[in-house]
Write a protein that binds this DNA or RNA. Structure first.
Lengths: 267, 267
DNA sequence: TAAGCTTTCGCGCAATCC
DNA sequence: GGATTGCGCGAAAGCTTA
């Protein structure tokens, strides 16, 4: 007598049932599945018995685990769908990385806090020692010749595009024009970083120029026009490191033997 | 008729059979297993039927695949053995935890470093402010009456075991004997923690004793012998908190209304 | 603690398949 | 005819309750 059920044997196979069961398990909340529910959904018939076959085998392989009476849980971090599995693993990794990063952030935040605290303390305790001296400035432009300029408002600073002379390195010039008062120019030599800055009167006496020029300017093009600078008294003794603020606070001009075409001067 | 087989149901379970089957599959050449062989090895009995349950379910999950009639092949590039899998996961977890802990350790180490640094800085900057005053001492023995004693070397301090008087709380006495010089005793009252310490001459004038005694000693047994103390000039004005070191640095005696049997005095 | 109900599941008949 | 496999009986295992 033929089966009333048109379904072929294959459609009712254990393997097929297993797949559906798996799908159900996959979709269930937290990977936990109530067998009663599974029976209701999957096996409209008396297939209940089969569910046990499935759960037993899966438990044997370690893909699921009995959580409580009537409930099993998906354990296999491994074989879901290939794709699902990859995604799950990826998510786990990302979650882990996120936790790591958050921890690092906290770490850095605290470190920052302590450093700031330390700076605050130091600044407070040493407030009378906080200033910039010419040595500090020189160190900021290590290896370059630094000119400090103080001039009244309205002073014009001009750096004309240098004439390109074949075979000769480009020569830069700086022009300063003031109609409201004298201009002060201070040369901070990198050579004498541990000595007080050299101050020249305007116009510089020829003998001083001759004696000092090579010494302090030999890093610049050697035939720049002579420095124009007003005399500025050195306010401290020779053996104390004068703070920059004690001389003047102003803007600084870096002069360097660079080959940059247009503006050879930054400020 | 009882089962000849003493094996419990669990020992014959599908899950158990599955494990053995898996092991066999794992060990087999190329992951290919002949079911006939499997039946022969695993199921000594008529368990043949069960093997089909297993293969069907495993095929459903996609862990194995029929290679030919009677032969299945292990597909799971993933799930190693049950045990292996568990161990791998466990190891991963532990590794992750270890990394976490190491990070936390570094974190704490650095935090410790900064705190120590902060303490160092503060200690350095405030070295002229670091001392203990009588208030600090009082706070160390909160709720107790504190006597400070300074005496020359050779001074003997004696606290005889108190006589136990029925119905009466134990009374403690302290004897100080010096043959090399005067003894100084300073009473630091917890009551007047914000006021300079009270200093009494030796022997204390009766009127002062009468006026102050209850006030400063009411926490001690009320009929202790009168304080013996030499006059010690208060070196600071009434409104400045005198540093302990400015008075004297010495040892301190805690006197308290305790019921401790033998030594009622620690130092 | 036993009776009674539910959940599990060993087991193997018998239908199918090849 | 041997290999497979759907199917479901009925007993063991658990739980609940009286």
């Amino acid at each position: 007598m033929p089966d009333q059920d048109p379904k072929s044997r294959a459609e009712k196979s254990l393997a097929e049932l297993t797949k559906r069961f798996l799908r159900l398990l996959q979709e269930s909340e937290g990977g936990i599945l109530d067998l009663k529910k599974a029976v209701k959904i999957l096996a409209v018939n008396k297939q209940r018995r089969r569910i046990y076959d499935i759960t037993n085998v899966l438990e044997g392989v370690g893909l699921i685990s009995k959580v409580s009476k009537r409930c099993v849980m998906w354990i296999g971090s491994l074989a879901t769908t290939d794709v699902q599995q990859t995604l799950t693993r990826r998510m786990t990794d990302l979650r882990s990385e996120l936790r790591d990063l958050e921890q690092k952030e906290t770490f850095l935040d605290l470190q920052k806090f302590w450093i700031e605290q330390s700076i605050r303390n130091t600044a407070e305790d040493c407030s009378n020692l906080i200033y910039v001296n010419h040595e500090d400035v020189c160190n900021c432009f290590s290896g370059r010749t630094v000119l400090a300029v103080r001039a009244p408002t309205g002073t014009k600073l001009e750096v004309p595009i240098p004439k390109v002379v074949h075979r000769c390195p480009t020569k830069y010039q700086i022009y300063l024009k003031s109609i409201n008062g004298p201009i002060d120019v201070l040369l901070l030599s990198k050579r004498s970083v541990s000595a007080p800055p050299l101050v020249l009167p305007v116009p510089p006496p020829q003998d001083i120029l001759r004696n000092n020029r090579v010494d302090v300017l030999d890093d610049m093009e050697s035939d720049l026009p002579p420095c124009q600078a007003s005399v500025y008294p050195n306010p401290t003794s020779r053996f104390e490191r004068p703070a920059m603020k004690d001389i003047w606070s102003s803007c600084f001009i870096k002069a360097e033997p660079t080959r940059t075409p247009a503006s050879g001067c930054e400020y």
